[in-house]
């Protein structure tokens, strides 16, 4: 049996399909439950089979508890603001670490990595103090600022630049191009997959962030999606409206999920060429 041609790939495919089913079940349930009436509790509520009389009332309830249009806008603003600044900082730093030699490079590189290790709860109060000192309290900029430097992004861009052969730069510099022109016209276009790969990580992380925006932002017109979602997830006195929770989760996740479905091939390719293979 084992020696049959093509059995292993088939076995693998079957196995992965089974796992994929398990992986998809929570998502399938979320979709089904979001359209199911009686969302707080009933015997058949765990069924993955959609109901015959779907309802939109869960979505209506979810949308009712906040201004979701505003939340989408603010979240998009935070996510794109963080990403835009990060692209600049990590490209410059990644380039420096990948291509330049200078005293203190190793130490600085590890000092960058330290950012990954710090646990968020320990940083709430110190960072909030800094944000207040900078005059950014209760602003979207305050929600973004701590993420403008990214150790992960720098590391990723360094790997990406390292993966680009030096011939291109050499040719360009022979022609007398200044360093910034080489970076801008030669290296960055080639490093775009790295930036795209980082963008997925960054956008997902900040789209889904809860605690820090909650700490920095007061003005309801600055609230982000996860703060809106918290209205369903943080109830203390025992109420769990599963249908509304499912609908709310879908509302939060939908834009990212649609983007991933639409661009998954390009995303995956970006990972392939980004140099994060190690």
């Amino acid at each position: 049996m084992w020696r049959d041609r093509g059995l292993a790939p088939m076995l693998l495919a079957t196995l992965v399909a089974a796992v994929a089913f398990v992986w998809a079940a929570p998502f399938v349930w979320t979709v089904v439950a979001a359209f199911r009436p009686d969302g707080a509790g009933s015997v058949g509520m765990a069924s993955l089979v959609p109901d015959l009389n779907p309802t939109l009332s869960n979505f209506r309830n979810a949308l009712d508890s906040g201004s979701f249009g505003l939340y989408y806008f603010n979240t998009a603003l935070v996510v794109s603001g963080v990403l835009a600044v990060q692209c600049v900082t990590i490209s410059l730093a990644g380039y420096a670490f990948a291509r330049l030699t200078f005293p203190g490079r190793d130490v600085l590189f590890y000092a960058f990595l330290l950012q990954l290790m710090l646990v968020p709860p320990a940083l709430i109060v110190p960072n909030l103090r800094t944000i207040v000192d900078l005059g950014l309290y209760d602003s979207l900029a305050g929600a973004m600022a701590p993420y403008f430097a990214s150790a992960f992004g720098t590391f990723l861009m360094r790997q990406t630049f390292l993966a680009i052969p030096r011939d291109f730069e050499e040719a360009a510099s022979m022609d007398g191009a200044p360093w910034w022109a080489i970076v801008w016209y030669v290296l960055l276009p080639m490093a775009r997959p790295g930036l795209v790969a980082f963008a997925i990580v960054s956008v997902t992380a900040h789209w889904n962030e809860f605690l820090w925006p909650l700490m920095v932002i007061n003005d309801p017109s600055n609230h982000t999606l996860t703060i809106g979602l918290a209205a369903f997830t943080r109830g203390a006195e025992g109420g769990k409206e599963w249908g509304v929770l499912a609908a709310g989760t879908l509302l939060v996740v939908a834009p990212l999920a649609l983007a991933f479905v639409a661009f998954q091939r390009r995303f995956v390719d970006s990972f392939v060429f980004s140099g994060i293979k190690g």
């Binding site: 998502f27 962030e209 999920a257």
Partner: peptide, 28 residues
């Protein structure tokens, strides 16, 4: 898409979904 989807869900929301999944008797 199916395999990557969980990474897109906020952990807070994922946890709430799993609260249901793990419910004794009634959960998924």
């Amino acid at each position: 898409v199916v395999l990557f989807f969980p990474s897109l869900v906020p952990l807070v929301a994922a946890a709430s979904l799993f609260f249901f999944i793990f419910l004794p008797h009634l959960g998924l």
